[in-house]
C-alpha cells in the first residue's frame, strides 16, 4: 500500500542565493526592505512600458490630426518655420553625442555635456519656431491646423523636457562619479533616442501629411 508522507517544510531562498536571479542586486528604492532588494532590470522594463504609453498618447494625437484634417473644412495649412530643419539636425546630433559618451568612457562627461547642451539648443529652436509663427499672427487658436501644430510640437517638447532633466541630473552626477555604465545612463539614452524618433515622426507628419 502506498501512502503519502506528511508535507515537508516549505522551502525558502535567501535573497542572496545565486539560484534567485530575480533579486541578484539592488539599489535605492529597495532599501526599505532590508536585505531583500529589487532587481535593477525593472528600470528598463518600466521605461519600455512608459514608452508604450507615450506611443499610445501620440498615436491618439496623430489619428486626431489625420481625421480632423480630412473633415474639418476650415483647415488652413501652417507654413512650417524653416528653423525646424535645424532643430531636427540638432536633436540627431545630441543623440549621437550620447552614444559617443557611452562608448568613450573616459570622456563620458564631456560628450554628455555636449548632448545636454544640444538638447537645450533644440528646445530653444522649437521656441524660436513658435515665435516665428506668432509673429506671423498664427496662434494656437487661429485655425485647426495651427492648433495641431502647436499641440504636436508642444507635447513633444514637454516629453523632451523630462529627458533633459534626466540628462542634467546625470551630467551633475558624472562630475563626482563614474556614470558610463550606470543603469540611469542606459535608460536616459533609450528615452532620448525615442524622443528623437518621435520628433522625426511628428516632423514628417507635419511636413508630408498636408
Amino acid at each position: 500500500m502506498a501512502t503519502i508522507a506528511p508535507p515537508p517544510p516549505l522551502e525558502y531562498l535567501s535573497t542572496r542565493d545565486p539560484d534567485l536571479p530575480t533579486w541578484s542586486d539592488g539599489d535605492g528604492e529597495g532599501d526599505s526592505h532590508g536585505p531583500q532588494a529589487l532587481p535593477e532590470r525593472r528600470y528598463l522594463t518600466g521605461l519600455l512600458l512608459g514608452l508604450a504609453a507615450v506611443v499610445m498618447f501620440f498615436t491618439a494625437l496623430t489619428s486626431a490630426y489625420v481625421v480632423n484634417q480630412g473633415i474639418s473644412g476650415q483647415w488652413e495649412q501652417v507654413p512650417l518655420p524653416r528653423i525646424l530643419w535645424a532643430s531636427t539636425v540638432i536633436l540627431l546630433l545630441s543623440s549621437l553625442a550620447i552614444e559617443k559618451a557611452r562608448r568613450a568612457k573616459k570622456h563620458f562627461g564631456r560628450w554628455w555635456e555636449i548632448a545636454t547642451l544640444l538638447g537645450v539648443l533644440f528646445l530653444s529652436a522649437q521656441l524660436a519656431a513658435f515665435r516665428r509663427l506668432a509673429s506671423a499672427g498664427i496662434y494656437m487658436d487661429t485655425n485647426p491646423a495651427s492648433s495641431f501644430f502647436y499641440l504636436l510640437t508642444g507635447a513633444h517638447a514637454i516629453h523632451l523636457l523630462g529627458g533633459l532633466t534626466a540628462l542634467l541630473y546625470i551630467w551633475i552626477r558624472s562630475r563626482r562619479e563614474m556614470m558610463a555604465d550606470h543603469i540611469a545612463v542606459k535608460a536616459t539614452a533609450i528615452y532620448w533616442h525615442f524622443m528623437d524618433g518621435l520628433w522625426l515622426w511628428l516632423f514628417l507628419l507635419l511636413l508630408l501629411w498636408r
Binding site: 504609453a53 494656437m140 485647426p144
Partner: peptide, 29 residues
C-alpha cells in the same frame, strides 16, 4: 490600462485646450 489611459489623456488634453485656450478640436463651425 497602460494602452487605454494614454488615449483618454490625449482626449482630455484636447478638451481642456478647447475649453481654456480656445482651440476647436471638438467644436464644429
Amino acid at each position: 490600462a497602460l494602452l487605454a489611459f494614454g488615449v483618454l489623456l490625449a482626449a482630455g488634453v484636447l478638451l481642456l485646450l478647447d475649453r481654456v485656450v480656445g482651440t476647436s478640436f471638438f467644436i464644429p463651425a
